[in-house]
Design a protein around this nucleic acid. Sequence first.
DNA 1: GCAAATAATGCACTTAAGTTGCATTTTTTT
DNA 2: AAAAAAATGCAACTTAAGTGCATTATTTGC
Lengths: 139, 139
Amino acid sequence: MDEIEKVLRQHRVRPTAIRLLMYKFLQERKVAVTLNDIESGFDKSDRTTLYRTIKTFEKNGLVHQIDDGTGVAKYALDEPQTARAGNTQNLHLHFHCTSCNETVCLTDHTIPHISLPEGFVTQDVNLVLKGTCDKCSRK
Amino acid sequence: MDEIEKVLRQHRVRPTAIRLLMYKFLQERKVAVTLNDIESGFDKSDRTTLYRTIKTFEKNGLVHQIDDGTGVAKYALDEPQTARAGNTQNLHLHFHCTSCNETVCLTDHTIPHISLPEGFVTQDVNLVLKGTCDKCSRK
DNA sequence: GCAAATAATGCACTTAAGTTGCATTTTTTT
DNA sequence: AAAAAAATGCAACTTAAGTGCATTATTTGC
Ligand SMILES: [Mn+2]
Ligand SMILES: [Mn+2]
Ligand SMILES: [Zn+2]
Ligand SMILES: [Zn+2]
């Protein structure tokens, strides 16, 4: 049995043809992708299916959505170990390059703790750095 | 001459009727507002005008746009002192309450410095904490 | 293995925010 | 006051996201 198939099953996602293809597609890309990026990567299949597929992935903890401020949602695979470990890796920061428009997960860089005024309870954090990425700043 | 009128002129924004009204509207609200919020606050005037007005404010340093992850842009007045001082206040974090859907500027809470891998150059930071605000957590 | 039940897919259509073009009105400049 | 520049209002367009429903594929119970 395929390795990807196993991962999907572990997350209770039935491994259909499109789902396997999309997972592979996400693995190949090192950066976060939009639904349009995914659509461009598949000659076949319909937008809606791809949309629902990525949402299924998200709901079942296979990918996370990234809001980098560009206005369009991006998605990236969760770290494989995340599910097993205490998902510390899950909360990481993202870097959005305003030059090439790519957004990457910086899973090594955890988000510093931030103290808030009395009464505020934090459940989630979104931290996005914007600027020029390594590739673009070298040019 | 009106005090608001002075502020607008200082930022090279001609003080028209709608602009004065919108600035006052933003002052009264303590939270960040969407374009729809603004629209609801004005019986008169057109969406487009309000849109272009807030964008004029933004371009001229009167307001800043906040992307809190809800998918719709919000806006809040810049701190008055920001323009004169070295705009340290400008870079602050935001708190988005998932219960009442309000987003507030936490101008006292500056964003901690974050070191990045070689080659990455940061120009801007977006830090949004999500959770329950003081009002909602007391209920 | 087969029928019924359940889930996934594809197409059409809808929604909502953001944005632009252009004619009209208002304000500023000369 | 006339000319120029800027602001406003209306209509239309763009794009991403999301829903309804019929069709197709897969899974489950027998
Ligand atoms: Mn990520
Ligand atoms: Mn703010
Ligand atoms: Zn780049
Ligand atoms: Zn609240």
